Amino acid sequence: MNVQEAVLRRRDLLLASIALAIVPTPVRGAVAKAERVVSLDYGLASTMLALGVTPTAVVALRNWDEWVVEPRMPAGVIDLGTTAEINLEVLTSIEPSLILSTPFLAALDEKLSEFAPIMTFTIYAEGGDALDRSYAETLRLGATLGRSDEAKALLAGADAFFERLRERLYRLSAPPVAVINFLDQRHARIYGGPGLYGGTMRRIGLRNGWTGQASYWGFETIGLEQLASLDEETHLIAVEPLIPRDVLSRLQESALWTGLPFAQKHRVSTIPGVLMFGMVQEAMRFGALVVDTLEAAHR
């Protein structure tokens, strides 16, 4: 058994164990009435679209284009407001057949269960890898929506897609990569651990330049001075939106920043926004953007 076969076998075993641990509670009528499904989570809404089902409503829809970017949400989907202030009048008018949620939003269950059954999907939690969980929960969502074949096809396509990215990186002899979101001119989130970005990097064979801690959400908040611990060959990738927008130009005036190896070697790139708390589609998009960026920078 070669290394790649071993990795895939381990992943399949993990998926099987996750699936057994999260056997869903049956939701009566969910498949039959999939046309009125509400999502409280961007990743679940994105996965619905990939399976050929358009959600009736999504929370915080007005921010979708900024944080998810792709896929585009079809016209006519209703904005439910924020999770902190869901528009209950709109929810009543929709008469949803099913509400998709996550453990992070469990405090809403009691109130929202008056409107429709709630089905909880676990992607980000202790003791698991977000990408592995995304695979397992995509199969659950597909079964719930009557789209099991589409879910299996999506995951088979994702496997093939990740393998092509791995092959491109192998030909490139890619350097280690550190991925950040700027929070301001002095702080950032840096990604790794069991989160979606970190899992995607491992899946495509890309070494993470950040070897420090990361929560199950997949990031650690750091001061920019901590970037000095990165491997000298690391390529830094910042995910948009940049906060503040001119942060990179401002940092050119910082002796700390300009003294860091990646800044001195001009190994700093930005990529468009990718939902960091997403699922399989977001992992594919993130992987493609990173590999495209490295190919352009290291030819």
Rank of each mutant, 00 (worst) to 15 (best):
A84P: 01
E233I: 05
P261D: 08
R202D: 15
W210K: 08
F219I: 15
R72P: 13
L169N: 07
S269R: 11
T122H: 14
V268R: 00
D231E: 15
L139E: 11
D12S: 06
L206V: 11
G223T: 08
P272A: 02
I180C: 03
K111Y: 02
V77F: 12
N63Q: 13
L88K: 10
L165N: 08
A21E: 06
T25G: 06
N87I: 13
I78S: 10
G273L: 06
I204L: 04
G128Y: 12
A143L: 08
I222R: 08
R250F: 15
N2Y: 01
M279V: 05
G205H: 03
A297C: 09
H187T: 11
T221G: 06
L145Y: 03
L105I: 05
I78F: 05
A153L: 14
A263Q: 03
R28Y: 10
P244S: 05
I237F: 10
E240W: 09
Y42H: 12
E295F: 02
A45D: 02
A263M: 10
D132F: 00
A153E: 13
P55W: 06
A156I: 02
A288F: 12
A158M: 15
E295Y: 09
V274C: 13
D129N: 13
R207Y: 11
S269Q: 01
V280K: 07
L51N: 10
S101K: 14
V274D: 00
D231L: 00
A60V: 12
W257V: 15
L196W: 01
L154N: 06
V7N: 11
T270Q: 09
T200G: 08
R203S: 11
T102S: 11
E233P: 00
S254I: 04
D109H: 15
L80R: 15
F104K: 09
Q264N: 14
N208E: 03
I78E: 04
E295C: 07
L251R: 00
M1Q: 07
S101T: 14
L236C: 01
E150N: 13
P272H: 07
F262D: 01
I190F: 02
Y124K: 13
Q281V: 01
F104G: 00
N181V: 11
E220I: 04
K265H: 15
I204K: 00
E232F: 07
L8D: 11
N63W: 06
R168F: 05
A174Q: 02
S97W: 03
I99Q: 05
V59T: 15
W210P: 00
R62S: 09
E232I: 12
A75S: 14
L80E: 01
A34N: 09
N208S: 10
A238L: 05
L44P: 06
T221I: 11
G76A: 14
V268G: 07
L227D: 15
R250H: 12
L40Y: 04
G259R: 00
S269G: 08
